[in-house]
Design a protein around this nucleic acid. Structure first.
Lengths: 243, 243
DNA sequence: ATTACCATTCGTCGAACAACGAAGTATACT
DNA sequence: AGTATACTTCGTTGTTCGACGAATGGTAAT
């Protein structure tokens, strides 16, 4: 009747279907997955999933990359991942059935990927450390650039200090200067209820830590810390992880 | 098959129906509205809306307060409002049809309520000012209290300095010490792409500014600044508003 | 070239669900 | 008391939409 509110309904309906929701959650690690993989993940026939994927693409939540006879899908922009996490915070955590689920839930709270960067307890600890040792400083009261296409989700940023730049370069973290993606970004954690580091820097840091062999991906979103990683994180950042 | 992820689907489906979405958006100002009001807002028959409201209550997104023969519905917890705003950031802003819609959209970006506190350009400015004049300081690297029932949405907090306490007391802002609600909370703004002040303090501040006659509510979510408010905000906080 | 594989389109079936009006149950007004 | 108002429950109708298998168009392997 009167107002110019965005209609939540269409986008929420896209996420409100079980198969599509499973797809989106599977893509939450930021990687691109093939349609067949996603079909198995969602537990429906390929033909069924194809229709779902088409709707998600049409709704601009995911995008396609064709590679040979495969089609890989990934989440288009961070704002999508953020909305998913916001919904996950709301959703009732279903009761733990098996011991495996219990340990899985514990592991995912300890350290996981969120879109393409580090989340969970480790992600939060790491951000805190970077800020406390003044490698990052909070950038406040500066006008945000509003990019309706790409950057609708970015809200609060940090800037890298010169000490931070040096330290990360020493560690071997490489940033792509041509990327239009904001360097850092708040990302809100559903398990820790606090912020962790997103943005291009968060992504590059995760990549490097895996490269160094400090972290390993297993079971999609879960991250495991190696012995080298335990030592390295303690030496480099003073992060002592729980048992 | 394997994991303990929260199922986004059920909660997203609740928001994914046009009538229910309209209801939730109407309730985003934090006030409790009667069922008949909401029926008019959603544009469906009372009997239809009754079913929708029942489902929303069952899904723990809204709660009821009975008052005589009326039933008032409101959003249960801040996390719900946050998820709605996250979705609004994602949703395509539908094209402006009329001039009235244009001015309405401009007004809602200027200053509005979000749940029960101040948002929009004014809300963001106010938070910045409070932080810059060190009435609030960012509270970092402290373990968050995880309250699965009420406080699932709180992420990052500020603490009120002693100067801040004095200043706000002088202004006549009263806080209910018995409330279990966190004093401050980040809340992310879909129009400004930056944070504004939520939590009990954000709510109390809005209440007081309206009491003082500095701000007035009109048309549900829109807030207008009075002449007294313009002077008061400039004198008290140094906030100069645009034209 | 032929065979195998990946993904999409099409047609059909079935279930889920939103919509309404009518009837029922409260509560308020006079 | 009686009447009006506010909301819910119930029964019905109709549409939407997700599910699958079969068939089609491309791409890679041999």
């Amino acid at each position: 009747m009167h107002m110019g509110d965005a209609d939540i309904a269409v986008v929420a309906a896209l996420m409100g279907e079980p198969a599509r929701a499973k797809v989106l959650m599977a893509l939450l690690d930021g990687r691109a997955l093939a349609a067949s993989t996603l079909a198995a993940e969602a537990g429906v026939a390929p033909s069924t999933l194809s229709a779902h994927l088409a709707r998600l693409v049409d709704g601009n939540l995911i995008s396609v990359e064709v590679s040979g006879r495969n089609r890989y899908f990934r989440i288009t922009r961070p704002a999508v991942a953020e909305a998913l996490e916001a919904l996950a915070r709301l959703a009732p955590t279903q009761p733990i059935r098996s011991l495996r689920q219990g340990t899985h839930a514990e592991a995912i709270r300890r350290a996981r990927t969120c879109y393409d960067h580090l989340a969970g307890r480790l992600g939060v600890e790491l951000l805190d450390t970077l800020v406390n040792s003044e490698l990052l400083v909070v950038e406040r009261s500066q006008d945000a650039i509003s990019d309706p296409v790409l950057g609708a989700g970015r809200i609060q940023r940090y800037t890298l200090t010169s000490a931070g730049k040096r330290r990360l370069a020493d560690l071997g973290v490489v940033l792509d200067p041509s990327s239009r993606r904001p360097l850092t970004r708040y990302c809100l954690d559903w398990s820790e209820q606090r912020a962790h580091l997103g943005g291009a820097l968060g992504a590059a840091l995760l990549t490097r830590l895996i490269e160094l062999g400090w972290l390993n991906r297993c079971d999609r979103r879960i991250i495991k810390v190696s012995n080298a990683g335990r030592d390295g994180l303690a030496a480099e950042f003073g992060i002592i992880l729980g048992p």
